[in-house]
Simulated scan of single mutants.
Amino acid sequence: MTQNRADTARKGKVHLVGAGPGDPDLLTLRAARIIMNAALIVHDGLVDPSILAMVRPTARLVSVAKSRSRHTMRQEDINALLVREALAGHDVVRLKGGDPFIFGRGGEEAQACKEAGIAVEVVPGISSALGASASAQIPLTHREHASIVSFVAGQCKGLSDQDWSGLAGPGRTLVIFMGVATAAQISEKLIADGLAPDAAVAVIENATRADMRVLRAPLAGLAHLVESERVQSPAIIVIGSVAAAADNTIRALAREAVQ
């Protein structure tokens, strides 16, 4: 029996690579090697330009940038693109900000590829939450402040219908991804579910990059802070006493340095 040419043709491999929080020095060695050797990179809009500058001159870059109001490509189309290129024999690097398996929809992309018979490798990256908080010197856990950490997507469907009680409060830290556009709803939701209006909040914008900002406010003032400071993505919101504790520690260190 003669084999079908489509069955014998070489299929490419898809690498789901985490680009980390921004600084190229925070890439894993594996991620850096794959990026520098890639012939085709499909990347998110939040991947820092300094990381894209690492690719070889002949590499093909395809942006599938997403924003709240505009999607260059729907997720279903991104999945189809990865499958199509791999079936054509191309190895594809799918480069995603942070870690591909933490609010990166990497699981959906991996599933689509596997269903098409395409090999997938996942290269973890430092998640945006961990990278942002560490670069801002905010410990997500602390013996005196928090032993539980929760990650939440601020743009998830049914935001107002979910019960967020218990996610934040004494002994807990809440980290919110993609929460800039819904800051007002997030603040109202948490207060309605029992969190104190004066709970400490830190907003970390452009974490690990030269233009990083760490902004602080009480929970009730989160929306005003985001609006007045014109906070833009990428940004992470950290809620809990660790945010205030870290601020006090940094100020104390700064005073000691001056004395």
Rank of each mutant, 00 (worst) to 15 (best):
A254K: 09
M54S: 07
L219E: 09
E229F: 04
I126M: 05
P139K: 04
L27T: 06
V93R: 00
R68M: 11
I148P: 00
N79H: 13
S69H: 14
H15K: 01
M36A: 12
N79V: 07
V231I: 12
L16R: 00
A200C: 11
E109S: 09
P21F: 04
V42Y: 00
V231A: 06
A210R: 14
T249N: 12
A32M: 13
I34A: 11
K96A: 10
T2V: 13
L130V: 13
E229H: 12
N79Q: 13
T182Q: 11
I204A: 03
I250S: 11
G166I: 10
A196N: 10
A110L: 07
Q162K: 15
V231K: 02
R5H: 13
H224R: 14
V201K: 07
G179K: 04
R216D: 10
T58D: 15
L174N: 11
A192R: 15
A181P: 06
D25P: 05
Q111W: 05
L26F: 02
V238R: 00
E229S: 12
G22E: 05
E115D: 15
R105F: 05
S150M: 02
G166Y: 11
A192D: 13
I204Y: 01
E144S: 14
L16D: 01
V226N: 06
A153S: 15
G221N: 15
I176G: 03
L253C: 12
T28G: 06
A116R: 06
R60I: 10
Q185W: 02
